[in-house]
């Protein structure tokens, strides 16, 4: 069994999505559904906390690519936080730091939304 869980939290000005476990081609549709749900509800300020994410493949990264444009068109953003070095390395190889805001802590990401 693939072990992957998504949890939603709300802060004053953003939705926080906690990822836990293994994000691969099998579990990526779950993340897709989660982001689609937020977008359907016009929730465009999204913080994805990767603190408990153990693994990611390009299928997982592809989900962020699928939604970032729509989210930014609506003046929101997907900001990523709390990545372990293992997870960051995958994002880094694929050039994500060029386009995505990646923060060490959730607080930093939330503050960026406040400042906008």
């Amino acid at each position: 069994m693939s072990d992957f869980k998504i949890n939603f939290r709300e802060s004053a000005n953003a939705n926080i999505v906690d990822l836990k476990g293994y994000l691969d081609a099998h579990t990526a549709p779950e993340l897709e559904n989660a982001l689609q749900k937020l977008v359907n509800n016009k929730q465009y300020n999204i913080v994805v906390n990767c603190k408990n994410l153990s693994y990611i493949s390009s299928a997982g990264l592809g989900v962020f690519m699928a939604y970032i444009e729509e989210v930014r068109k609506n003046k929101g953003d997907i900001k990523l936080t709390n990545m372990s070095p293992k997870i960051f390395n995958v994002f880094d190889i694929l050039g994500f730091p060029l386009l995505y805001e990646i923060y060490n802590t959730e607080l930093e990401a939330l503050q960026k939304f406040t400042n906008h």
Partner: peptide, 21 residues
């Protein structure tokens, strides 16, 4: 990679990742 990511193109990322790893 830079241009793919800027244009949200997913194709080929898996193969690129394999070669890098």
């Amino acid at each position: 990679i830079k241009s793919s990511i800027m244009k949200y193109r997913k194709g080929g990322l898996g193969m690129y990742l394999m070669k890098s790893l």
